[in-house]
């Protein structure tokens, strides 16, 4: 197959979505542009309420955009809705399995709805069940499954009709770390075996490391978009977190004596410097305050998020986000 120029799997231009009108108008998505190459795993990051779910719902043809355009798998999400739907697989934040039916019956239902021929359907159902290691449980009712198994089954179901793009909205929300890792293992495995494009939203920064490219969304806008490595080196700094007896004094002296701006994050004095290892000895000699502990961290995506939005992802999640976590867990 010659390496021809291909249309991006997802291309979005000036996409907006508002709810309500007049004074009540809420702009959930404020004109975003993005392009996802075929075969990539693309991470969509941001705190709860950033507009990630609304964006993914527009790309999946569940909501119509207020303005702007989006093409997925080569078709317009509004004008050619069914063409898009045939070519995408969806895994929602909320559980969408029929608990009273067996795993096999759920998959069969999906295959029928998407119009797969009998033989194709049987073969695909076997393949996807095998992929998520649920072949031996295919005859069991879904209500007997654990949360992680249900999630795996939903991913399998999203793949039954061999979509070109797989959308996952917070696929690991409410799952324990071990299961989260397992889910990512399946997704990596999937990428190795097929050329599928994966579009995943998450607010776990560590999961973004699994992606080829990421976009950080905040307040309805994409603040930055690049590979995780490029983003980390663009921040280019190590982060130092200090526990001290007098945080105010420490911040003041850091500014006066070392010329470094610091701020409080999660109860610690936090500063960004080019080379952490060289700064630490000077802290002890020049600050003259009691330092209880020092932590130096190489740049992580949390720092990238902080650099571009001015806060850590946990700062930006109010108490209501816990409610969202529990809602997603249900």
């Amino acid at each position: 197959m010659p390496n021809t120029v291909r249309e991006p799997a997802i291309s979005v231009g000036g996409l907006t979505k508002s709810y309500g009108r007049g004074d009540q108008l809420i702009e959930a998505v404020k004109g975003i542009d993005l392009s996802v190459e075929a075969g990539q795993t693309y991470g969509f990051l941001g705190p709860n309420g950033a507009g990630k779910s609304t964006t993914i719902e527009m790309l999946c043809t569940i909501r119509n955009p207020t303005s702007g355009s989006a093409r997925v798998a080569g078709y317009d999400v509004v004008e050619e809705r069914d063409e898009v739907r045939r070519r995408i697989g969806l895994v929602f934040q909320q559980q969408t399995l029929d608990q009273q039916l067996t795993a096999q019956q759920n998959l069969r239902f999906h295959a029928d709805l998407y119009g797969l021929a009998r033989g194709d359907a049987d073969r695909r159902i076997d393949e996807v069940l095998d992929m998520v290691a649920l072949s031996d449980r295919r005859g069991d009712e879904v209500q007997k499954f654990s949360g992680g198994m249900k999630r795996r089954l939903e991913i399998a179901r999203g793949l039954v009709h061999s979509p070109q793009v797989l959308f996952l909205d917070e696929p690991t929300i409410g799952l324990d770390p071990q299961t989260r890792r397992a889910i990512w293992d399946y997704l990596h495995d999937l990428r190795r075996r097929t050329e599928i494009t994966v579009f995943v939203t998450t607010h776990y920064m560590d999961e973004a490391e699994h992606c080829d490219r990421i976009a950080i969304m905040d307040n309805g806008e994409i603040v930055v978009e690049d590979t995780p490595e490029a983003l980390k080196s663009s921040v280019g700094t190590d982060r130092i977190a200090l526990r001290t007896d007098d945080d105010e004094l420490t911040i003041g002296r850091l500014r006066e004596r070392l010329g470094i701006e610091a701020a409080m994050h999660e109860g610690q004095v936090t500063l960004a410097v080019a080379e952490g290892a060289q700064v630490v000895p000077r802290l002890f000699t020049e600050l003259d305050t009691v330092i209880q502990s020092v932590t130096v961290t190489r740049p992580s995506l949390d720092d990238v998020f902080m650099a571009y939005t001015g806060r850590t992802i946990r700062d930006s999640e109010g108490p209501q986000s816990m409610a969202a976590v529990f809602a997603g867990r249900r």
Binding site: M1, N3, R6, A38, G39, R86, R87, D98, L101, F109, D112, L113, Y114, G115, L116, A117, D120, R124, H161, S162, P163, Q164, T194, E195
Partner: peptide
């Protein structure tokens, strides 16, 4: 990206028959 772009497996033999089949599976559920 060596592998060719696969067309979806979805076989749409006329929209009506697809819709009828969808009706039948919802009914069968």
């Amino acid at each position: 990206m060596a592998a060719p772009v696969r067309e979806p497996l979805t076989v749409v033999r006329g929209d009506l028959s697809h819709q009828l089949r969808a009706t039948w599976v919802v009914c069968r559920r």
